[in-house]
Amino acid sequence: MSTSSPTLPVDVAALAGVPADKGEVHVVHLYPREMSIYGDLGNTRCLAARLRWHGYSPVVHDHHPGAPFPRRVDLVVGGGGQDSGQVRVQHDLAVQADRLRELAAEGVPMLMICGMYQLFGEAFITVEGVRLPGLGILGVTTRGNRTRMIGPVVLETGFGPVVGYENHSGSTELGAGQAPFGRVRHGSGNNGTDGTEGARTHNVVGSYLHGPVLPANPALADGLLSLAARRATGGWAPGTVDDTLALEAQGRQIRRLLRS
């Protein structure tokens, strides 16, 4: 029987004996089997590793279709998937819709990538014109088209510069009053025309950026973790983390793309 029992990914910090005594932070990964292409599972592994590096105890719940939703939730992540994957999770997503809307309204941080970003919007309209309703947590509408937007992306966001890789055929439009996740400095973003990428409402972030995006952008990862830790423990007491290599790689990618 499918359950949502917690699993703890192995990470370098755990092997090194880094203490984790600042409290538990519960991370829920939505549909890791169906919606985790292009390395998006790495986002969850990054969050768990960084929590340990900062001295917290990560508890990761893999939520599968048909399973009970975890009772304790401090942060939610979801990834991209093929059309078949989206079909397989739609029923369960409808069952969990009210709970997810409630958590979003409470300020629970969430990161939804690509396909899950689209499903968290108002609707997806297929190439044939069929309108598929979404959760409505993010005020965006996506239309399928026959042209894909593929390639590296550089954004300016509230978390600082963010780099990643997009690969999507959906063209997403922000509704009235909906804030983007970031402004495009290189790449296509939501639709290739208005200079926006992703969407952010409360602490819910939707984005097309794969990579996985969090290991390449430590400030974004820690921004989400700070929100989750405050919810879980009442405060955020980061440890000292050496992000030299990640930041060097990020900076080189930014410089290379903005010169091109």
Rank of each mutant, 00 (worst) to 15 (best):
S2F: 13
L8F: 11
A14C: 02
A14R: 13
A16K: 14
P19A: 11
P32S: 09
R33Y: 11
R33W: 06
E34D: 14
C46N: 09
R50L: 15
R50F: 12
R50W: 12
S57A: 14
V59Y: 04
H64K: 01
P65M: 01
F69G: 03
R71Y: 00
R71D: 15
R71H: 06
R72W: 01
D74F: 00
L75H: 06
V76R: 03
G79T: 10
S84P: 08
G85S: 04
D98I: 00
L100H: 12
E102N: 11
E102P: 01
A104V: 01
E106S: 15
P109K: 06
L111Q: 05
C114R: 03
Q118T: 06
L119H: 07
A123W: 01
G129V: 03
P133Y: 00
P133M: 00
L135W: 01
V140I: 15
L155G: 06
T157S: 13
F159W: 12
N167P: 04
H168P: 03
S169T: 13
G170N: 02
T172M: 10
E173W: 03
E173D: 13
G177R: 05
G177Y: 04
A179Y: 02
G182S: 07
H186V: 05
S188F: 13
N191C: 12
D194N: 12
G195P: 05
T196G: 05
E197Y: 04
G198I: 01
G198C: 07
T201H: 15
T201N: 15
V205S: 09
G206E: 06
S207A: 11
S207C: 14
L209K: 07
H210T: 07
G211I: 03
V213N: 00
N217V: 08
P218S: 11
P218D: 10
A219G: 08
A219H: 14
L220E: 07
L224S: 11
A228I: 00
A232W: 00
G239I: 09
D242Y: 08
D243R: 07
T244R: 14
L247Q: 12
L258K: 10
S260Q: 14
